[in-house]
Design a protein around this nucleic acid. Structure first.
Length: 555
RNA sequence: GAUUCGGUAGCUCAGUCGGUAGAGCAGCGGCCUUUUAAGCCGUGGGUCGAGGGUUCAAAUCCCUCCCGAGUCACCA
């Protein structure tokens, strides 16, 4: 925790780097130049060089790459460096003296640059121009050629937390084995979140999670676009918040001198747009909810919501399942491609694997446990049916019997008793803990939400579903209420409850009611939590591992 | 909020029964023109999370607090 500090307040290692910076300048080299013209990235060079020997590599001409020095092995008058660009690595070879090249002339590469090369620090950025070669051990390497072969691109003044090498010793204390161990990746969890830049720079597999996250978002967007949904943008700052039950963050607009709220949902705005005649809309949004932080909650989180006119919640289930399966397949393919080389998989082998993924034959695994029905049709699980299976037949129980059930189990019902609340409590206690395979938990009690249509076959229920995967709620969907009179009654009742001291109800949104009064078509709506979706598809156990910058207490 | 575990060098960690604070990597000074765990020689670096207590003596035992992670609860 407490660093080795000097009088000036910086560590000895930082001091050494500042000294190296001074020396670079002294050698007439600008340590922070403007640009570098690279021709390829490390990954591209590796692809180009695959299966070629040194002779044919050298005949391919010159290449230039730029990146960060992540390993440095100097042996007197040569140096091998691992250069990292875009989280891919390639070895580069620098020499002090001239080397006679193919055409018999000298390359004159290192002499001028050598003093600078010698004082490179891990983390420095450099550019290298030269020819590809293979070392004795067969590693593809870019060898710098000529005085133009090396350029300094940016000095690092602070040591990056590169992983260490573990030593395995025998009884006599002799080192018998050393290995880089994954668990020693920059592992101070707090520091990893606070200094995500350092985490990303030294842990390429962390960076990969965020690449996968982007892929997931792109797949979802692509699906919606292909199904004629229009991407729109609605306000983050709202004078009246609503669309979910949550406490908002409050802010203030100076010029208007009014309070404003960061949205807890964009639902009411997207419905306004349906009223405005856009039949299918969607939006990726950050929602903000003033709540605690844990493994599955962050105060700001990303959702995609979409609304479709003339559709109901059954139609939305089809979309929901298709979107998740599509994104999951994309993730599995990327993972397969990434590990193909390490697994010695040929191009044909990879194609076969892709076909299997596309056919849903490669299982999705979360935290070591298979989601075996994921690529099939997901179970539809009405709350009442699930409870019946557990021996609780809600419709056959009187209020007294329901209350007795709660008491004998020592469950705690918050708020006042109602049949619907009791039903959801029993569901949480009896059914939820056992949910693992994807399931559309559906047909919730009517009082669970004011924005949903009453169930067409049961007036005590609404047409709502909340899909659960690996025990996590990953979305929410309704046959959306479009009767303005009923809507007003439900929202007003909620405002009344709010005055009664119940938290997390919304103020009355008159403008939303006005939009509904002009007329709204029937519609289905869905919200998908992108963070939890990314958790499940990338096999991460904490929401903070799929957020680049999770909320942290200030240092 | 309850509870468990943790905080020792830049990083990852060890530290026995309370007895001069350690290792690897990183750093610094050398040697080494195909290394990749580079190697060899030498070397600097510590408010042991903070404060208090017990003791001749505390990283170690006790108390309080701070910070973090996990689990549960709350929340969704």
């Amino acid at each position: 925790m407490v660093p080795t500090t000097t009088v000036s307040g910086i560590t000895d290692q930082e001091l050494a780097r500042r000294e190296n910076l001074r020396r670079v300048r002294e050698l007439g080299v600008e340590p922070f130049p403007y640009r570098f013209e690279f021709t390829h990235r490390a990954a591209e060079l590796r692809l180009l060089g695959e299966g070629k020997d040194s002779a044919s590599l050298k005949s391919m001409g010159e290449f230039a790459i730029a990146g960060r020095v992540v390993a440095y092995r100097s042996s007197g008058k040569t140096a091998f460096l691992n250069l990292q660009d875009d989280h891919e690595r390639i070895q580069v070879y620098l020499r002090r003296d001239d080397e006679v090249n193919d055409s018999g002339t000298t390359s004159g590469q290192g002499e001028a640059n050598w003093p600078v090369i010698k004082i490179l620090d891990l983390g420095d950025f450099i550019g290298v121009r030269g020819r590809l070669m293979r070392t004795k051990t067969g590693e593809l390497t870019l060898q710098a050629v000529g005085v133009q072969g090396f350029e300094f691109l940016g000095k690092s003044l602070r040591p990056l937390p590169f992983p260490k090498v573990e030593e395995v010793k025998d009884e006599a204390g002799k080192v018998v084995e050393r290995k880089t161990f994954q668990s020693s990746l920059f592992s101070d969890i707090e520091a990893r979140y606070r200094q995500r830049y350092a985490d990303l720079a030294v842990n390429p597999e962390v960076a990969n999670i965020f690449r996968l996250r982007t892929t997931i978002v792109q797949e979802v967007r692509q699906y919606l676009v292909e199904h004629s949904f229009l991407e729109v943008e609605t306000p983050t700052l709202q004078a009246v918040y609503g669309g979910a039950s949550a406490r908002p963050f409050v802010t203030h607009h100076n010029a208007l001198d009014i309070p404003l709220y960061l949205r807890i949902s964009n639902e009411l705005y997207l419905k306004r747009l349906i009223a405005g005649g856009f039949d299918r809309v969607f939006e990726f949004v950050k929602d903000f909810r003033n709540e605690g932080i844990d493994r599955t909650h962050n105060p700001e989180f990303t959702q995609v919501e979409f609304y479709q006119a003339y559709a109901d919640y059954n139609d939305m289930m089809v979309h929901f399942q298709a979107i998740w399966q599509r994104a999951a397949k994309a993730v599995l393919k990327l993972k397969a491609r990434r590990s193909a080389l390490a697994r010695g998989l040929s191009m044909e082998g990879l194609q076969t694997e892709f076909a299997a993924i596309e056919a849903g034959q490669v299982p999705l695994v979360y935290q070591g446990r298979e989601l075996s029905t994921f690529f099939g049709d997901w179970e539809k699980l009405p709350v009442k049916t699930a409870l019946k299976r557990k021996g609780v037949d809600i419709d056959a129980l009187s209020d007294q019997e329901l209350q007795a059930l709660i008491q004998t189990n020592h469950w705690e019902l918050d708020g006042t008793y109602s049949r619907g609340r009791a039903m959801m409590l029993a569901f949480e206690k009896l059914v939820e803990p056992e949910l693992w395979e994807p399931a559309f938990v559906m047909d919730h009690p009517a009082e669970s939400t004011p924005l949903c249509k009453v169930h067409r076959n049961d007036p005590t229920l609404v047409e709502r579903f909340e899909p659960a995967i690996a025990g996590m709620e990953v979305g929410n969907s309704y046959s959306e209420l479009n009767d303005p009179i009923v809507q007003r009654r439900l929202l007003e009742a909620q405002v009344e409850r709010g005055r009664g001291g119940e938290e997390e109800t919304h103020p009355l949104d008159e403008d939303f009611l006005r939009a509904m009064e002009y007329g709204m078509p029937p519609m289905g709506g869905v919200g998908i939590g992108i963070d939890r979706m990314t958790m499940i598809l990338t096999d991460q156990s904490s929401i903070r591992d799929v957020l680049l910058f999770p909320l942290q207490k200030p240092e």
